Amino acid sequence: MTDDRRPPAEEPVLPESTPTDRPADVPARPAGRPRTRLLLLLALGVLALDLVTKLVVVATIDMGEDVRLLGGALYLTQYRNVGAAFSFAEGWTVVFSLVAVAVAVVIVRTARSLFSSAWAVALGLVLGGAVGNLVDRVFRDPGFLRGGVVDFLSVFGPDGEVWPIFNVADSAIVCGGILGALLALRGIDFDGSRAGDQQRADAT
């Protein structure tokens, strides 16, 4: 009598799927949370510092007065700038006001896709500075979008003899712009990745 019992056939073992299994053409989601909070907090800090310093200067320093500090390395004064940062292109106040509005809108719209802390710092500085000077152009004389921005920092000489007079907002815009340019040159994207990372991954 033969034994017809056979061992049960082994079922094929399917590979376990992992969260990282995705089509090759679908980019991976950047790790971590968007750096929106860092951007906005830095922008608010720059804006607050800019507004406070301008209010103090207007309240304590008369037009044309120079306060010598640091042995002449820095002078405090009060000057109304109707141009861009560092008194560039005076007479284009309305144009620069509209540009500041456009810059602020673009940066805020970009914030949700921002995963790079360095880019958050760069754009936060630019946003805070742009809004700080925009407040002056909106609310100060001679009128809406044409107001003179309060500049008060003069280095190495009074009244902008060596370098154009500037303020905290101007400094933030320039520093943020320089940082952004360096990040772009290094190929760092808003999500924190480098421009060549995806190409190297595809090659492997």
Rank of each mutant, 00 (worst) to 15 (best):
V135N: 09
Q198C: 02
G128Y: 04
V138D: 13
P27R: 14
V135W: 12
V162W: 02
F156R: 13
P30A: 02
A59V: 05
L134K: 15
L183S: 01
G132Q: 10
G83F: 01
T204C: 09
G160F: 05
L134R: 13
V67T: 11
T20N: 06
Q198T: 05
T60R: 15
V121Y: 06
D50V: 06
G128H: 04
G71C: 04
T110K: 03
R29I: 07
F190Y: 10
G187C: 04
L55N: 15
A184D: 13
G177P: 07
G71W: 00
E161S: 15
Q199N: 06
P142Q: 09
G157D: 05
V155A: 11
D66R: 14
N133M: 09
L123D: 02
L114H: 02
R68Y: 06
L74E: 02
S17L: 13
G192P: 02
L74I: 11
P158S: 04
L55R: 15
R5I: 11
A9R: 14
A201N: 09
L49H: 02
G129E: 09
S87M: 11
V108L: 10
A195S: 04
V106A: 07
R35V: 02
A28Q: 02
L179W: 12
L69P: 10
M63R: 12
V126L: 11
G128P: 03
T93C: 06
L153H: 03
G180Q: 13
P142M: 09
A181I: 15
T53H: 00
A104L: 01
W92Y: 13
T20G: 03
V168L: 14
R137W: 14
C175G: 06
A9S: 07
D3A: 06
G143A: 11
M1W: 00
F86L: 01
E16C: 03
I178L: 14
